[in-house]
Amino acid sequence: MKRRIEVNEAVLDQERMILKAMPFGENDLNGLTAKGQMLVDSDQLAFIYIMDNKEDFIYTNLPAEVWPQLKTALDSGIPVDLNVNGLTIELTDIHDELSYLLENIKDNANYGEEMEKKVVEAFGLDD
């Protein structure tokens, strides 16, 4: 199972959305970079942003609780940063990746009924 950075808060700070994460193993953060790719975890009702520490991929869990703030960032086009253990990393290409996933999830039963419903509600995708 992939190791996960768990985001538990999102705050707007000077035209940037800051995703604050729970403490994570210091050694795993050495050389940590944003991959610019995202996945969906329908079982956990979360989006996953992929990070790389040169040895392995580390998943950044973006739970439904922070989706309203992600929508704000997406709608306004502001950068999104991850803050974990005092380290701040910009999540490159998150707008494009998230937009692509939202487009694919809407009206798509492959992601599960609950995931699709929550995404449509949180991101205002209903027509």
Score class of each variant (00 low, 15 high):
22 M>Q: 14
45 L>N: 09
65 E>S: 14
46 A>H: 03
59 Y>M: 07
4 R>G: 11
63 P>S: 15
12 L>C: 03
100 Y>T: 13
49 Y>T: 00
88 T>M: 12
39 L>M: 11
38 M>F: 07
63 P>K: 06
59 Y>K: 14
1 M>T: 10
34 A>T: 12
32 L>T: 11
51 M>R: 03
17 M>W: 01
89 I>D: 05
104 N>C: 12
97 E>H: 02
119 V>L: 14
46 A>D: 04
100 Y>M: 09
91 L>A: 11
81 D>N: 15
8 N>Y: 12
26 E>H: 04
122 A>D: 09
37 Q>Y: 08
74 L>F: 06
110 N>C: 05
125 L>V: 04
23 P>G: 14
27 N>G: 11
120 V>A: 14
99 S>K: 14
127 D>A: 14
111 Y>F: 15
38 M>A: 01
7 V>H: 00
64 A>S: 14
78 I>R: 03
20 K>A: 05
117 K>D: 12
92 T>G: 11
125 L>P: 12
103 E>A: 11
48 I>S: 04
47 F>G: 06
49 Y>P: 03
121 E>A: 15
125 L>H: 08
93 D>S: 13
24 F>H: 14
33 T>W: 00
118 K>C: 07
61 N>W: 04
48 I>C: 04
25 G>D: 14
110 N>Y: 09
41 D>A: 11
21 A>R: 01
90 E>W: 00
35 K>A: 13
18 I>Q: 10
9 E>M: 08
17 M>G: 06
103 E>V: 01
44 Q>D: 12
79 P>V: 11
29 L>G: 03
22 M>V: 06
36 G>E: 01
33 T>S: 13
57 F>N: 15
73 A>Y: 00
57 F>A: 12
117 K>Y: 11
23 P>C: 09
111 Y>V: 10
6 E>L: 09
121 E>V: 07
98 L>Q: 02
28 D>V: 00
91 L>N: 08
44 Q>M: 09
70 L>C: 08
114 E>K: 15
91 L>K: 01
15 E>A: 09
9 E>P: 02
17 M>S: 09
29 L>D: 03
120 V>P: 02
94 I>T: 06
45 L>I: 05
123 F>R: 00
4 R>D: 15
11 V>K: 15
